[in-house]
Design a protein around this nucleic acid. Structure first.
Lengths: 172, 172
DNA sequence: AAAGCTTTGACCAACTTTGACCTACGGAAA
DNA sequence: TTTCCGTAGGTCAAAGTTGGTCAAAGCTTT
């Protein structure tokens, strides 16, 4: 088994045993544990924990710095999940994006407010920088995907919270 | 947890439990309490209690000297206006953008949910396309500006609505 | 052999912590 | 009153601690 696969499995194990659906890790610590270069951790993250896989990554440098990996679980039967996987893809023209956004909003998957934020991000006005049109389509897809993941993540967090409340209620 | 974060939390705790919305503290005393260099207190103040965070700081040297920290609350919309004009500009590096976002959220100008959406849009993960770094900074500024404007528009719409409601109430 | 993954290491960027040196205030001594 | 000294806080640059990037080198699969 390749080292990268081992590290991937290890991190996924960490995530699945964590309470929340995210973990915090130290790059150097992990690298030392697996006797590899620290940058290998980045390689694993950038090839196996991408937004396309449903992961979002945040990190901080400096003393006490760390890497946070958040797994946004989507069920294959989920409508939003389907849209993200099948419709967003790696490329999204502006008309495509607008249509998708309207549909998402109409179906109630994305609120008016969130739709407005995404619309602002993918608008031609925002993307009016001198780069090839094809690059903008890629960028639009990335923006759309990451922002939709954020929406799903929030929905899940709210769901967890309300579930916790119900459990708390039952205990009483 | 970082020492700076611990000190930050400690001071915020002090402020929130204080009668007024400000506190007075002794730099050397605090430094001794946390077993750190006195200048670390300055570091915490200058990175976490700036005017942009909504804090004002006064100090007096010499015998009986002290540092006074006052938490000032401005209207979130005004704050947003100011930040869009003064801080966003046409260029925004990733650390700059993240800092700004943290401040906006801390001051209550931007909700947690909106901040998360913006964070997703300006993240390195989203902007990982092969264009010059300078172009990304421009893009980041555009994203930030247009998304913040969206937040303002929504806030104002809500305000109009609630005002209309009040007027309606009065008419009855 | 070619193409496509992995692995590594040199160099970079961001954030924190510390310490040497500086400035201001206030009271005591001259 | 003026001078001096002790007691605060201020500044800044160096050192320390993390993570990020990128391209070259090494494997694997075709």
């Amino acid at each position: 088994m390749r080292l990268s696969d081992t590290i991937e499995t290890f991190i996924k194990e960490m995530i699945s045993t964590a309470e929340e659906n995210g973990v915090e890790l130290r790059r150097n610590e992990l690298a030392e544990y697996f006797h590899c270069a620290p940058s290998q951790i980045n390689y694993v993250l950038s090839t196996r924990f991408t937004p396309e896989h449903g992961y979002m990554i945040e990190s901080r440098r400096g003393g006490g710095g760390c890497i946070r990996i958040i797994h946004v679980q989507t069920s294959p039967t989920d409508h939003l999940d389907y849209l993200i996987r099948e419709r967003v893809g790696t490329c999204l023209t502006e008309p495509e994006a607008r249509l998708l956004l309207r549909q998402l909003n109409a179906s109630g998957a994305v609120s008016e407010a969130d739709a407005a934020m995404i619309a602002a991000a993918i608008s031609p006005q925002t993307l009016s920088v001198p780069i090839p049109e094809a690059m903008k389509d890629i960028l639009r897809a990335k923006l759309m995907r990451n922002m939709l993941l954020t929406v799903i993540r929030r929905t899940q967090a709210e769901h967890r919270q309300s579930t916790a409340l119900i459990i708390q209620e039952r205990k009483r």
